[in-house]
């Protein structure tokens, strides 16, 4: 396999398969909770943190592609975005959708300002940063893949363990509360999983499109299934397959950002599923 597609792409493929699986798995619950927009604003809110992380790592004289500092920055920044959304919703008369739109655009805008600043000072060095916006697997290292793989497995494991409580929480929050799963804890767990998926997905799909990983496979799986369990597994399989195909295509055709290719493939799968399931149901 490595002879066919190269060591680097093989690495990226393993990362994408595992990440696609867990993002589809978590995404099924995000989709059922109707929290896709929240995930999108969370992803956009990573940009300022990414750039600040980049600056910090440059200041400390680390390699500019040192992904740990960048991802940590992205995580802190997204978390701050979620806190602002929750504060606006709870303390003002503005609605949830307004809070989401405000945070998404303001954080992203601020991130772009920072990014432009960085670009004007240190031309060429920000090459690593753009990878996180549209996704690129070309420079993926073994350590990146190990982290993405392990975290993906942990996210999927968490979904397996909490599947019943998450299902009850989304379907009937009072039932889950009475069964001993407090609503705020379940809500936090789901947000945390979405956040973690977003952060580890930055490298593969990029922050603009990472929300697609959490929603399109889930929406596709929903068309084919009638239960939460089967839906989440099918969503994971769809996510994994599309991410894998996307990475291979983007490796074969250089200069194509992997994130965009993955999303286009997922969209094709969704489109076909809509047509086929529609035809099937109208035949019955």
């Amino acid at each position: 396999m490595t002879e066919l597609i190269g060591y680097n792409t093989a690495l990226a493929l393993v990362g994408a398969l595992l990440f696609g699986f867990s993002s589809g798995h978590v995404g099924a619950f995000v989709y059922l909770r109707k929290a896709s927009l929240l995930s999108d604003s969370l992803a956009h809110a990573t940009l300022p943190g990414l750039v600040i992380g980049f600056l910090v790592s440059a200041f400390l004289g680390m390699e500019e592609k040192n992904s740990w500092v960048l991802l940590l920055g992205a995580g802190i920044s997204a978390l701050f975005g979620v806190v602002v959304i929750q504060w606006i919703t709870a303390r003002t008369k503005l609605g949830f959708d307004t809070a989401i739109a405000a945070v998404l655009s303001v954080f992203f805008g601020f991130g772009i300002v920072l990014l432009t600043g960085v670009q004007s000072v240190s031309v060429g060095q920000q090459a690593g940063l753009e990878d996180y916006i549209l996704g690129s697997v070309s420079g993926m290292l073994l350590q990146d893949v190990i982290v993405i793989g392990l975290v993906s497995i942990m996210c999927s494991a968490a979904v397996m363990v909490y599947r019943r409580s998450l299902t009850a929480f989304i379907f009937d929050s009072v039932l889950s509360e009475m069964a001993g799963y407090a609503q705020h804890r379940m809500s936090f767990l789901l947000s945390l999983l979405a956040l973690v998926i977003t952060i580890i997905g930055l490298k593969i799909v990029g922050l603009i499109l990472v929300v697609a990983m959490l929603t399109i496979p889930a929406a596709t799986a929903r068309l084919w299934t009638t239960g939460v369990w089967s839906m989440s597994l099918l969503s994971a399989v769809f996510g994994s397959t599309c991410a894998g195909i996307g990475v291979i295509i983007s490796a074969l055709l250089p200069n194509l950002p992997s994130g965009a290719v993955i999303v286009v493939i997922m969209f094709i799968a969704l489109g076909l599923s809509i047509v086929v399931t529609h035809l099937r149901s109208s035949n019955v």
Partner: peptide
């Protein structure tokens, strides 16, 4: 519109008793 059948919904009544695992 939640993806569940009648059996699934009634089974949710046992989730408290079943716990996580």
């Amino acid at each position: 519109e939640f993806p569940a059948n009648v059996f699934d919904v009634v089974a949710m009544g046992l989730y408290g008793e079943l716990g996580l695992l």
